[in-house]
Design a protein around this nucleic acid. Structure first.
Lengths: 130, 130
DNA sequence: CCTTGTACCATGCGTACCAGTGGTACATAT
DNA sequence: ATATGTACCACTGGTACGCATGGTACAAGG
């Protein structure tokens, strides 16, 4: 498992880690159950801060690409292969595009959308419907 | 029709104009059909830039509180009274809260939501569903 | 002792956006 | 010539946020 980070790249380091690990899962370089380097270990190797690597791992775990088992380390998720195909970001963009489109059609300004969104974000009004 | 602007207030000037005109419509100080001062006139009186007043008028026209008749000036909309009760901003907030809530429930980070939104906003060229 | 993941405090840098200002120009009609 | 609303160019402050960084601490098990 080769992981490199380009500090000068357009993508922020944590995103590069995510991209590379996802790619490794897809091309078979990483198989379900395989252990990943520890946060501190990888951070040291890449000369990154622990928090940066931890962030990447946290996001990967949310997407069920990786699974953290506490003191035992982090491993590739059983269904990582399938989950690596899912692009959560695309779904998010789709959802937002749909809503934004509706708002714009109503004549709402982009500035108003941003302002309102900032307001909503700070109003932890999580009307749960999960 | 008395309009004043407090440059030191929290609300930006253009928003103050909107608020006061909406209020004037509601309390009867302004009636449907009444003429409003011209953009340049009001800007001069309040020592504001034409663009600032024009912006307020533009937003008010979008909400059908006011009606611009080109070279003839700007007048209070026929149904301004009823439309002044409508709070477009509340509807926008509701729409966004609904979408944001759904995204959050899916584990999407607020940062990701903001990033994705910024991306969607700049994709003016993509699909149209009006 | 060591490791693991995770959580909290805090800071700085860069970027993107909003709001307002400035000037100029147009087509319209008086 | 004057007035109307409207459109375009560019620029300046202020603010909010993302990203990464620093250090410290915890519970769990080796």
């Amino acid at each position: 498992m080769e992981i490199t980070v380009d500090l000068n790249g357009a993508e922020p380091p944590f995103a590069q880690l995510i991209s590379q690990i996802r790619a490794a899962v897809q091309n078979g370089a990483l198989s379900p159950g395989d252990p990943l380097p520890s946060i501190r270990q990888l951070a040291t190797d890449l000369e990154l801060n622990n928090k940066t690597v931890a962030k990447a791992y946290r996001l990967l775990e949310r997407d069920s690409i990786v699974e953290s088992r506490g003191y035992r380390g982090t491993f590739v998720h059983r269904e990582a292969r399938a989950n690596s195909e899912v692009d959560l970001n695309a779904w998010v963009a789709e959802q937002l595009a749909e809503t934004v489109g509706r708002l714009r059609d109503a004549g709402v300004t982009d500035a108003e959308i941003r302002t309102s969104l900032a307001f909503v974000m700070n109003e932890r009004s999580t009307q749960g419907e999960s």
